[in-house]
Structure formats: structure tokens, C-alpha cells
């Protein structure tokens, strides 16, 4: 399915009857940019460190420097190339966020699917659990846990998986509950189909758009949360190539090399926004499957 470019339908009508335009899809260019940026971020995260093994090599003699031919975005106070650092930093920032989104999606399914489909005590317990988690300030808990335990990057990722999962659980459960009372599911039950078959083959494909959209949204929030922790010096080790960490480490360089601060900041914002755009687009495409012949 192609995404038409924004053309006002009323423009084509002779006599120019002005009408409110039909709600249109994202213009193709925005989605294309989103796909390219997300792809670049993923690429950098997967292969960046392989191609730039010396990115974190210090050059204390050089120290902080403005952009130059050798260093397009200048260097930080330890003489490290900002562009290379950002490219390599994608690994911990992007892969971590990906792990969090995927992990919480999995956990959300494991709890939300049975809770929504079976109801009863399973549902009661699951709902109490998510209610409790929702009354907690998530980022705050993450700060306390990683700060007090001091357990490093993996602990930060795991903590965020647990803290993100109630959101996924609720989304999955609500979507399942909504589908469960639809006649096509009731018909499947009357057809003697096994619960597992109904849940996986009938209900799941129809909640997929919502769930996928939510997972992409989660990725953005996870990226923000993880770099927030890094920014506070929690989780990732000091001096590592990580976008949040770079923001914290290079804070004092605002005057000497602004790019050392701006680049990692923009990297976080652009990646999260791009993934959100792609998620929105995917959500709609999946949603339209039922309308396609």
C-alpha cells in the first residue's frame, strides 16, 4: 500500500468546493525519514563498535576541540571524537531500549493474554499487580534500585523491563477483553476450538496492531528512561560511549565544543521520534489488514 503525498482533494475540484480533507496517512516523506533514521540507529548499534574499535581511545593531549577536518564534530575533554562516540554509543542506548521494549512486551503477553482471555482469579491477581506498579513512580524506582544496588547496565535494563511491563500487560489485556466479546471469537468458541488456538490464531492477529504500536511507543520511552539513568551516572559505567552518559560527561563543554552536547541529545530525540513515526505507520498498516480484500 502506497502512502499518497499530501494533496488537498478540494484543489482538484472545479468550482473549488471547500471540504474538510479526509484524514490522511502520514505523508510519505515523514515515514521515509523515520525509517531511514531508525535504520541508521539500528545499524550503528549492531555494527558501530566493530567498525570503530578505537572510538573510546583517549587523546588527552588534544583535549576538547572544535569541529575540524579530522573530527567533524570536534572532540570532548578527553580528546575523543564526538561523532565516533555517538556512533558507538548507539549500542548501549538503542540495543538497551530494544531489549526493554521487547522484554516488557513478552512479559506483558505472558500476563496479559491469560488475564484477558481467562479472566477469574488470574485476572484479579494480574490487575492488582499492575495497579500497584502504576501507583509507583517508575523512573524514581529505577533510580533508587540502580543507585542503591549499583548493579550496572544489565540491572538497569532488567529493572526497566519490569517497570515497563505493567503498561504492556494492560494494553494486551484490554485489547483481548475487547476482542473476546466479539462474535467471531464466540463463534470460534462454539466451534470447539481450543482456547490456545483461539487466543493465538484468532485473538492475537487482531490485537497485533495495538500491541505493536504500543511496543514502538515503549521503545521511545525506554530510550529516554535508560539514557536518563545513564545521565545520572547510574547503570552504565562512567566514561562509556553512551548517549545519556555523554550528555552528563560533556555538560561542562557547552562553551568549548557545543557539538559534544548537542549531538548525543539530538541522537536520542531523533531516534525516539523516528521509531515513534515508524510505529504509528506500522500500527495503521496492520489495522487496515482487515479492510483489505
Amino acid at each position: 500500500m502506497s502512502t499518497p503525498l499530501p494533496t488537498d482533494p478540494s484543489a482538484a475540484v472545479p468550482g473549488g468546493r471547500r471540504r474538510r480533507a479526509r484524514p490522511r496517512r502520514w505523508p510519505g516523506t515523514v515515514v521515509a525519514v523515520g525509517l531511514v533514521v531508525s535504520g541508521l540507529a539500528l545499524l550503528a548499534a549492531l555494527v558501530g563498535p566493530l567498525f570503530l574499535p578505537d572510538a573510546t581511545q583517549q587523546d588527552v593531549l588534544l583535549g576538547v576541540s572544535q569541529p575540524s577536518a579530522a573530527h567533524p564534530l570536534g572532540t570532548d575533554d578527553l580528546g575523543r571524537d564526538v561523532l565516533q562516540m555517538v556512533a558507538v554509543g548507539a549500542r548501549s542506548s538503542v540495543l538497551g531500549a530494544l531489549l526493554i521494549a521487547a522484554g516488557s512486551l513478552l512479559l506483558g503477553h505472558l500476563i496479559g493474554l491469560p488475564a484477558g482471555y481467562r479472566g477469574g482469579w488470574v485476572d484479579q491477581v494480574a490487575m492488582r499487580w499492575t495497579d500497584l506498579m502504576f501507583s509507583l513512580p517508575a523512573l524514581l524506582v529505577a533510580i533508587v534500585v540502580t543507585g542503591v544496588v549499583g548493579g550496572g547496565y544489565l540491572l538497569a535494563v532488567l529493572t526497566l523491563v519490569v517497570l515497563f511491563s505493567p503498561g504492556d500487560t494492560r494494553v494486551v489485556r484490554a485489547a483481548v477483553l475487547e476482542q473476546r466479546q466479539r462474535p467471531y471469537v464466540e463463534a470460534a468458541r462454539l466451534s470447539n476450538l481450543r482456547d490456545r488456538t483461539i487466543a493465538l490464531r484468532y485473538v492475537w492477529p487482531n490485537i497485533a496492531p495495538v500491541v505493536t504500536g504500543n511496543a514502538f511507543l515503549n521503545f521511545g520511552f525506554a530510550l529516554v528512561a535508560l539514557s536518563s539513568l545513564s545521565f545520572l551516572g547510574l547503570g552504565i559505567a562512567p566514561g562509556s560511549a553512551d548517549w545519556g552518559r555523554m550528555l552528563a560527561d560533556n555538560r561542562s563543554l557547552l562553551l568549548s565544543n557545543t557539538w559534544a552536547v548537542v549531538t548525543p541529545g539530538l541522537a536520542i530525540i531523533l531516534t525516539a521520534a523516528a521509531v515513534n513515526v515508524v510505529g504509528d505507520w506500522l500500527h495503521r498498516r496492520l489495522d487496515e489488514r482487515g479492510l483489505r480484500r
Binding site: P183, Y184, L193
Partner: peptide
């Protein structure tokens, strides 16, 4: 067995008609 009111919501929207019917036959 039951036939529902709304023919638009009583069939799996993204499953082919043949697959839906085969599912039912198999389940019995």
C-alpha cells in the same frame, strides 16, 4: 450451533474464509 446477527463481526477479519471453515471442521 449458532449464527450471529452481524455478519461483519462474526468472522475473523484477517483470516480467509476457507481457513476459518477448516478450523471449525478440524475442531470437530
Amino acid at each position: 450451533q449458532m449464527v450471529f446477527q452481524d455478519p461483519y463481526s462474526s468472522l475473523h477479519p484477517v483470516r480467509s474464509v476457507g481457513a476459518t471453515l477448516a478450523d471449525s471442521l478440524a475442531a470437530f
